Computed example of a mutant assay.
Amino acid sequence: MNTKNFKFTNLIIYIIITCLIFIISTNTPQLLDKTTLPNDIPQLFSGLLFTLLTISFILFIYKETNKDIITDIGLLNKANRPLIIALVLPIILFILSILLGFATGTLHNLSLSSDGSAWYAFLLNVLVAFLYEAFPEELLVRGVILSELRKKLSFLSTLFLLPLVFALIGLLSHAFSTLIATGNLTPPPLIILIQFYIFGIALQLYREYSNSIWPSVLFHLICLELTRYVFNQQNNPIILFNEPVTGIMLLIGLFLTMYLGSIVTLSVLLFLRRKN
Score class of each variant (00 low, 15 high):
residue 273 R to V: 06
residue 208 E to C: 00
residue 8 F to H: 13
residue 255 F to M: 12
residue 104 T to M: 11
residue 259 Y to K: 14
residue 67 K to M: 04
residue 44 L to I: 13
residue 156 L to P: 08
residue 83 L to H: 07
residue 144 V to T: 04
residue 22 F to R: 06
residue 63 K to D: 09
residue 95 I to R: 04
residue 155 F to P: 07
residue 224 L to I: 14
residue 135 F to T: 02
residue 44 L to V: 07
residue 74 G to E: 02
residue 98 I to L: 15
residue 80 N to E: 02
residue 259 Y to E: 15
residue 82 P to V: 05
residue 211 N to A: 09
residue 193 L to W: 06
residue 165 V to D: 08
residue 275 K to A: 09
residue 35 T to W: 00
residue 132 Y to Q: 10
residue 251 L to G: 05
residue 90 P to H: 09
residue 195 Q to M: 09
residue 196 F to P: 01
residue 83 L to G: 06
residue 167 A to E: 03
residue 178 T to D: 10
residue 78 K to Q: 14
residue 118 A to I: 09
residue 247 G to R: 01
residue 118 A to S: 15
residue 155 F to K: 12
residue 251 L to D: 11
residue 249 M to P: 04
residue 51 T to E: 04
residue 100 L to F: 14
residue 258 M to K: 10
residue 53 L to M: 12
residue 271 F to P: 00
residue 216 S to I: 03
residue 263 I to L: 08
residue 136 P to E: 02
residue 71 T to F: 13
residue 144 V to G: 03
residue 48 L to G: 15
residue 266 L to A: 09
residue 97 S to R: 12
residue 202 A to R: 08
residue 241 F to S: 02
residue 158 T to R: 02
residue 246 T to P: 00
residue 176 F to S: 10
residue 122 F to T: 05
residue 176 F to Q: 01
residue 98 I to F: 13
residue 140 L to M: 12
residue 5 N to S: 14
residue 116 G to H: 01
residue 232 N to K: 00
residue 164 L to Y: 08
residue 69 I to E: 04
residue 4 K to M: 06
residue 221 L to Y: 07
residue 58 I to M: 12
residue 25 S to L: 04
residue 138 E to L: 01
residue 139 L to E: 00
residue 65 T to R: 15
residue 113 S to T: 03
residue 237 P to Q: 06
residue 38 P to G: 05
residue 214 W to I: 04
residue 159 L to K: 02
residue 216 S to V: 08
residue 143 G to C: 03
residue 38 P to V: 07
residue 179 L to Q: 07
residue 172 L to Y: 11
residue 42 P to E: 07
residue 260 L to C: 10
residue 37 L to E: 05
residue 152 K to R: 15
residue 113 S to N: 07
residue 173 S to N: 07
residue 149 L to M: 15
residue 155 F to T: 15
residue 225 E to Y: 01
residue 62 Y to N: 13
residue 23 I to W: 11
residue 34 K to T: 12
residue 267 S to N: 06
residue 198 I to W: 12
residue 3 T to S: 15
residue 171 L to I: 07
residue 226 L to V: 09
residue 181 A to D: 13
residue 178 T to H: 11
residue 33 D to Q: 11
residue 100 L to R: 06
residue 131 L to T: 01
residue 65 T to I: 14
